[in-house]
């Protein structure tokens, strides 16, 4: 199990790096999809089957298809391998912002102590659909419902924006 974890973790990091490094945006998207798969692998190792599959359905199956869809259209307009020019200022800004985030992460994780689990009281069914549903619909009912209202609002907003305006077409 341990070696499997390290294999998956290194694969995740490698693919995540390739997302940033790849010159071709389509390659980036494909590496991001592989990253989601490896993260799902981590969920399976943590005994959270439901989360693993939902991660694949939602991210790899739906969101990334839309990403790929949009990027394929973007690539069409620029013939050949036109290089994206980045100004020196934005490079500096990016480096500083990323570095700051890194510092914050290290500061947050520096003092964190990893809580191990007790094999006697550990419930192996904790990541299964049934226990997840129980927790979600009793203990965290309000946040859950609020999140779904948020999704509904986003959906209505998207429909509003996508609706054809009356009168002459402006686009």
């Amino acid at each position: 199990m341990e070696s499997l974890f390290f294999f998956l973790a290194s694969l995740t990091l490698l693919c995540a790096l390739m997302v940033v490094i790849s010159k071709n945006p389509v390659h980036s998207v494909l590496f991001l999809i592989i990253t989601f798969f490896t993260i799902s692998g981590h969920y399976v190792l943590l005994n959270a089957q439901f989360l693993a599959v939902v991660n694949i359905i939602v991210y790899a199956g739906a969101i990334m298809v839309l990403f790929l869809f949009v990027i394929m259209f973007l690539n069409m307009s620029k013939q050949g391998d036109a290089k994206i020019k980045t100004s020196t200022v934005s490079k500096f800004a990016g480096a500083i912002a990323g570095g700051l985030l890194f510092v914050v992460l290290i500061a947050a994780l520096k003092d964190a102590n990893v809580v191990g689990y007790n094999p006697d009281t550990y419930d192996s069914q904790i990541g299964m659909v049934e226990s997840l549903g129980q927790v979600l619909f009793t203990e965290y009912l309000l946040p859950f419902e609020l999140a779904s209202v948020l999704f509904l609002v986003a959906m209505v907003g998207a429909v509003m924006l996508g609706k054809r305006e009356e009168g002459e077409s402006n686009f």
Binding site: V26, I33, Q49, I56, I57, G61, V129
Partner: peptide
């Protein structure tokens, strides 16, 4: 697995990648 239906659904949602990758990589409109 106790999530068989979701597994099927996940695999179905991945089915389009082969078509998309092949279609884009052909460099043909």
């Amino acid at each position: 697995v106790n999530i068989g239906v979701l597994y099927i659904f996940g695999v179905v949602s991945l089915g389009v990648y082969g078509l998309m990758i092949g279609g884009w990589a052909s460099n043909n409109k």
